[in-house]
Design a protein around this nucleic acid. Structure first.
Lengths: 341, 341
DNA sequence: GGATTATCATGAAACCATTTATGGACAAAG
DNA sequence: CTTTGTCCATAAATGGTTTCATGATAATCC
């Protein structure tokens, strides 16, 4: 069943059928109706490949991410997919894992599939050395590349990020306003957004006139238990009464550490996570967390993408602000500070 | 840059280039080398659309799920995507939400994109009335349909499920072996696997000779707080010393309920979740949970899919067994029972 | 009112980039 | 001299989109 069959049955040329199908050009109401009824009757569906061949697009966007089972990335993918679909695009998903060679391989694979654009979710691609980023720059020469929560400068590259620097600075400031004297910031591998957060934390501490000895930072990899171990070691040497983290899992480790040491939360130890993930309400007390409002970031990313596809000018980088969601691991003074802000 | 350019430069016909590209037919080593070197030199990539048109496939599988941000579905999608890609298939992701009309629409959209097969992740599609399932049966006439953790009988439909009945029956039996007298089973909407779990729970209770008054079941929709409210109401009328649930979020609600009522866990109230999700280790005490081993289920699903695509015979349904992961919300007697089993 | 022009609906044909069936040329073997 | 087999070119699909040409009809002009 192809367009020829339809045209034959309708007694018109294939061009007319094509016009009806695409709503392009002028077709008389009578012929349109006739063709539509035949299409309905026969259940004809245009062949997507032939269409793609003629138009050189199949309205498909490639999504590249390291691990779609990561709750944060899963949420990003979900929002991106929803936005794309509402604009008539399909998304082909590509989980690369964390190996760089695999990432490159899959990026090229997506391009060979003739996707209209590539979305890098979770930014993990752009953390490597400038030499490695060349692959992204090359890709951006062929199709628009949109980066979610990551940053790379280059023609054809558009970034939609959370203003992580500001988020951490503002949050840390409020913490310090509430008489905490020794904040600790825990982070994982320093991605772009990771660096921004760290900068924000340190900027707030300096703004506040804290000495270099009064605040602490620590990089932790691995599981919740690695976090606990790290904190056990750290507390032998340093004092801290507040823990901010770059993601909620780290905060959960902090919470477990506090409980293990018999520290009351939030009275003796205040904890603030990042991402406002589903984990927050599982904890006891429930975890306060910074919400980077991923749905907005993703919606914005798609806006950028659509503009780029249309050839309209679009900003190379848009930073959206975060919100603090206050729950049980921060004290009431902090809640008040967030409210009045 | 197309196959004509390559053939011209190599001084051969496009058919020969195609043969080299696909490794089909006989080509002399000399010409092969020459063509390959020109391809490499020019960076030529075959046009995927034209390829799709000629072969009538683009090696793409459609994944249909309700909500890819749901941790359970996200994990399923991840495993499926990994398996597919390792066999050279791409996956186009389609999140439908929970509205039936939307599901139908997207199912048809995937078919019109000429996917080679459709995977229904999380089964939510096949819960409706038989009349509604017709859409799936129709789809299965065109391409293989693989259902993960759901069940529907029909030609071209292949199901890879967890043996939920057995999982719940075995778990409940072990609970009863540990001197719990009044188990409660909490579940959400009764999907196929939901029904199986419920059946398994009840079968174990009956096997054990419990009277209909001794055990309880309850359907809960909504958030953790709805679960807590439900349990608050229930405990006014019934006594229960063990809660099994159809997913971990319900179990977290149960845990919060126990804490709120000052019941010690696991001594006074034992809790067992389902899915062994990332939430488990966030809880305090950490949540014991039944693991349906999603990665195996997904791997099996892809095995079925590949067989179906090759036209080889494949079982319409494969049920894999679950495992209990013992953590802190079940007592030591239960742990021993699981160990010796 | 007839010639001119604009508009509209439509068809013919080119084009998109591949795969593949068919068969021809040539060489080696019988 | 025929057979067999290897290598490769020709040409026919594959199923659409789009440009261009054309005929018909309607509007405008003098």
């Amino acid at each position: 069943m192809n367009i020829y069959d339809i045209s034959r049955q309708a007694g018109v040329s294939i061009a007319t059928v094509s016009r009806v199908l695409n709503g392009s050009g002028k077709v008389s109401e009578a012929t349109r109706e006739k063709i539509l009824s035949i299409i309905k009757e026969t259940g004809y569906t245009p062949n997507a490949f032939a269409r793609g061949l003629g138009l050189n697009t199949m309205n498909t966007i490639g999504i590249l991410c390291a691990d779609s089972s990561d709750p944060y990335l899963a949420l990003a993918i979900y929002h991106v997919e929803q936005e794309l679909r509402s604009h008539g695009y399909d998304s082909i998903l590509c989980c690369t894992g964390y190996d760089y060679q695999t990432k490159v391989k899959y990026l090229e694979l997506l391009l060979s599939k003739r996707v209209d654009a590539v979305i890098l979710a979770g930014s993990t691609f752009v953390e490597a050395s400038p030499a490695q980023n060349r692959h992204i720059l090359d890709a951006a020469k062929e199709v628009p590349v949109i980066i979610i929560n990551g940053y790379l400068e280059g023609r054809g590259i558009y970034c939609s990020v959370c203003d992580d620097f500001d988020a951490l600075r503002a949050a840390t400031k409020r913490v310090l306003d509430c008489d905490r004297k020794n904040p600790l910031y825990l982070y994982r591998a320093l991605s772009y957004s990771g660096r921004e957060k760290l900068r924000g934390f340190e900027a707030a501490c300096l703004d506040y006139g804290l000495s270099r000895e009064a605040y602490h930072t620590g990089g932790v990899n691995g599981s919740i238990y690695d976090t606990i171990n790290f904190l056990e070691e750290l507390q032998k040497q340093k004092h801290f009464d507040m823990i901010l983290t770059s993601d909620d899992e780290l905060a959960i480790g902090a919470l477990k550490f506090a409980r293990a040491r018999g520290l009351s939360v939030p009275e003796e130890m205040s904890i603030l996570g990042f991402n406002n993930s589903r984990f927050c309400v599982c904890c006891d007390p429930e975890l306060s967390s910074i919400d980077c409002q991923l749905s907005f970031i993703c919606a914005n990313a798609i806006t950028l993408l659509l503009k780029a596809l249309k050839g309209e000018p679009a900003p190379a980088k848009t930073a959206l602000s975060a919100q603090i969601v206050v729950r049980g691991t921060t004290d009431t003074a902090f809640a008040r500070a967030c409210h009045t802000a």
